[in-house]
């Protein structure tokens, strides 16, 4: 057992375990909370911790996008969905025992399988001398608009189409058919 006393490494390790503990506890709250709004707040905590993990892995740009899109967009959307479909007093019934057992069994089975699988596998780790691109944002931007080999310009365009389609789809699905004639934007 070697515990390195290099302060930078130490802070890194402490940050990792603190974030890991917080995110696991918050994730458990997400799946078990009886009040759905509390689950949404816990989800926000999990996602913020996720951004923390990305910063620990040195992908600061992805962490920023995670905060911007997940916490700033998706969580707020989910909160809206909660506000529109339930009230403060609505408390969710706990799942039936059979369902609970099924859920526990499948999640534990997955956990066990995955842990065994990757403890048996030898991953091709990159050499220690390998350097991460210094400016992740720049590297990602170049790669996304690169149309040569290994470029991602086509998936990028497809994603933008997907987003457009989902926006239009959402408007069509959510609009109230009884109020078709009103042209207001709200």
């Amino acid at each position: 057992m070697d515990i390195t006393l290099n302060p930078a490494d130490l802070t890194h390790t402490i940050a990792f375990y603190t974030l890991a503990l917080t995110s696991i506890v918050a994730a458990l709250i997400v799946v078990t909370a009886k009040r759905i709004f509390r689950a949404a707040v816990a989800l926000a905590v999990v996602l913020i911790c996720g951004a923390g993990f990305y910063i620990l892995l040195n992908y600061d740009f992805i962490a920023g996008v995670q905060l911007l899109v997940y916490v700033g967009g998706i969580v707020i959307l989910i909160v809206f969905a909660v506000m529109l479909t339930s009230s403060l007093e609505s408390i969710e019934e706990p799942p039936s025992l059979g369902r609970k057992a099924l859920g526990l069994f499948s999640s534990l089975a997955f956990l066990a399988t995955a842990v065994i699988a990757f403890s048996e596998t030898k991953f091709p780790l990159s050499s220690i001398s390998a350097e991460q691109p210094k400016d992740v944002a720049k590297a990602v931007g170049r790669k996304l608009l690169d149309y040569g080999a290994g470029g991602y310009v086509l998936p990028f365009e497809v994603i933008s189409l997907l987003l457009l389609a989902s926006v239009i789809g959402a408007i069509v699905v959510a609009r109230n058919p009884k109020r078709k004639n009103e042209g207001s934007a709200t």
Binding site: G64, L68, V71, G72
Partner: peptide
Amino acid sequence: IFISAVSSF
């Protein structure tokens, strides 16, 4: 990006 992200908190 970070500033506009945290303003959503």
